[in-house]
Simulated scan of single mutants.
Amino acid sequence: MAGADRSGVLVTGLVRVALAAVVSEEPPVHALAEVLFCQAAVPSLGLALAFDEDQLFWFDFPGSRWTPRLPDLPSWPPTLEPPAELLRDATLCQDLRRALTALVTGVVPESKGIPVADVFPMRPVTLGEPNTLVCMVGNIFPPAVEISWQLDGDPVTQGVTHTHYTPTADLAFVRFSYLPVTPAAGDIYACVVTREGDNTSVITYWVPQNPVPSEVLETALCGAAMALGILLALLGIAMILVARRSTHG
């Protein structure tokens, strides 16, 4: 698959394989995708291998090596797609991008996705205890956004890490950003996503809320159940008295 627009982005799917189990009536379909993109913006090149939109490896073009998304993944086989071959593909991608951009500029409308950000903690929140906030940014196209963090309106940069762009089935990209935090009452965190070129920003806020301890919750539920039982008992007595008065009357 390939696509280009006036923004000068060329996305090429090098490999897309459907894997299906043959034992079920409606077999699940899985996608293994290796996607190369090139553009005039930064980053100018990107290459990722994803399984069901979960990134497994990304290619470090300056270092000419495959890098696993998670440290537990095995190393990339050195004989499979050597760096020299991928660099030739990258050069071809840039040449095609420039040629297609010259052809479609002013003819084909520019394609841009509005990023959608979601912020959530990596672990259950307890005020005063270290945690990590995750900002998941989807619907990215072209793959050129800046992700930053704020705490109470002030920029936060210490400990911030970002993933590389991961291709999705709808020909867009997703990217993650991580911020180590120690949440406190009243904190207001913000994930700011800015598109390059037009400086359009999408901001998603997150406010820590300390969950109710289980012992307090159990006590409250027991108290509510007891109060409800007493109320029902009083209601039953009142109904009996009303029925007796009606009978004697």
Score class of each variant (00 low, 15 high):
residue 1 M to A: 12
residue 5 D to Q: 02
residue 5 D to G: 07
residue 7 S to L: 08
residue 8 G to Y: 00
residue 9 V to P: 03
residue 12 T to F: 05
residue 13 G to D: 11
residue 13 G to C: 12
residue 19 L to T: 06
residue 24 S to C: 01
residue 25 E to P: 00
residue 25 E to K: 11
residue 26 E to H: 10
residue 29 V to I: 15
residue 29 V to K: 12
residue 30 H to F: 09
residue 34 E to C: 15
residue 37 F to Y: 14
residue 40 A to E: 02
residue 43 P to D: 02
residue 47 L to H: 06
residue 53 E to Q: 11
residue 54 D to N: 15
residue 54 D to T: 10
residue 55 Q to E: 14
residue 57 F to I: 07
residue 58 W to K: 11
residue 60 D to P: 06
residue 62 P to G: 04
residue 62 P to M: 05
residue 62 P to I: 03
residue 64 S to H: 06
residue 64 S to G: 01
residue 66 W to T: 03
residue 67 T to R: 15
residue 68 P to R: 00
residue 69 R to Y: 06
residue 70 L to W: 05
residue 74 P to S: 00
residue 86 L to A: 06
residue 86 L to T: 10
residue 87 L to G: 01
residue 87 L to T: 03
residue 90 A to C: 02
residue 100 L to V: 11
residue 102 A to F: 00
residue 104 V to M: 05
residue 105 T to D: 12
residue 107 V to C: 10
residue 109 P to A: 08
residue 110 E to Q: 12
residue 112 K to R: 15
residue 121 P to F: 05
residue 138 G to D: 14
residue 140 I to Q: 03
residue 143 P to W: 00
residue 144 A to Q: 04
residue 149 W to L: 05
residue 150 Q to Y: 01
residue 150 Q to E: 14
residue 151 L to T: 01
residue 151 L to A: 04
residue 152 D to R: 12
residue 154 D to K: 15
residue 158 Q to R: 11
residue 160 V to M: 08
residue 161 T to C: 04
residue 161 T to N: 02
residue 164 H to G: 07
residue 165 Y to A: 00
residue 165 Y to S: 01
residue 166 T to E: 00
residue 168 T to L: 13
residue 170 D to N: 13
residue 170 D to L: 07
residue 171 L to W: 13
residue 174 V to R: 09
residue 176 F to S: 12
residue 178 Y to M: 12
residue 178 Y to F: 15
residue 179 L to N: 10
residue 180 P to L: 11
residue 182 T to D: 04
residue 191 C to S: 02
residue 202 V to P: 14
residue 204 T to F: 06
residue 209 Q to R: 13
residue 210 N to E: 15
residue 211 P to K: 01
residue 214 S to D: 14
residue 218 E to P: 02
residue 218 E to V: 12
residue 221 L to M: 13
residue 228 L to I: 08
residue 230 I to F: 05
residue 231 L to I: 07
residue 244 R to C: 10
residue 247 T to E: 09
